[in-house]
Amino acid sequence: MAAQSIPVSGWLSSKRRSQQVAHSITYVLLIIFGLTFAFPLYWMVATSLKTPPQQVVVPPIWIPHPLVWQNYPKALTAYPYADYLRNTLTICILNVVGTVVSSSLVAYGFSRIRWPGRNAVFILVLATLMLPYQVTMIPLFLIFRGIGWVNTFRPLIVPSFFGNAFFIFLLRQFFMLQPAELSDAARIDGCTEFGIFYRIILPLARPALATVALFQFMNSWNDFLAPLIYLNQQSKFTLALGLQQFVSAYGSSWGQMMAAAATFTVPMILLFFFTQRTFIQGIALTGLKG
């Protein structure tokens, strides 16, 4: 990161030096915690590269040697990875679009306009998160069954276009971080409410929107239960279903299971790595001088 330029003569100034000390401490902490947090992923990949005898040694081998790749062809061909990936991406992308658009609109209505009854309705929104899905799952299925949507992607996609309570709450909190004066000034300038939403609040909330998009993508990617219940044709299955099948079938080999888990996970990690910059961009937009 170029943001941190190591000062050439800066160590002379005590302020700079104390900053450097602080950075060093940060760094050490980051590395210690980082190792801890990277461990699950490391373990997953390491196990997937082990020979079967290496997988069963006690105490465990931390670094596989030799590396074997044989688990990967199996994991990628056991189910039609490409087809399932296409299905999963279709669902994920549409869900992200639906959620970001609808939840931001609704969150705006709950945070930056005052209207009578707003609080009561907002509590109702939150309350929908509080009832365990286990008991609403089947009545919901009956609705989709009634309109003939079973065995299509629609039950997995359409609801996201009507706002999700979790994301509405999240965005509401972020919209409330923005000073009220911003809206007031715009209103005086004759800006419509939608104009304020679209031109002022949304751009300011980009880090939050990115978070919402990421979370929704991940939720849809990992969702196992809804596809299981609604899809009756293998050609429509998603990666999460494929992984589940693989895991129950190749239960006796940690290596194969971890290889399958890795092929399931890697796209998500890449997505996060390349989008996390969005969380930083917020700074530039609020007009911070570098």
């Binding site: 990161m1 941190q4 950075h23 940060t26 947090f37 990277a38 992923l41 997953m44 299971m257 996970t265």
Partner: peptide
């Protein structure tokens, strides 16, 4: 910690997010 600008910030952010991405079957095994 992750908001402090240090070299490799992007990398660290990814690292700390990793466990939430790894499927629960894999974390459970670990």
């Amino acid at each position: 910690l992750l908001n402090v600008k240090v070299p490799g910030q992007a990398f660290f952010r990814t690292v700390f997010y990793l466990p939430t991405v790894v499927p629960v079957v894999a974390t459970a095994a670990l």
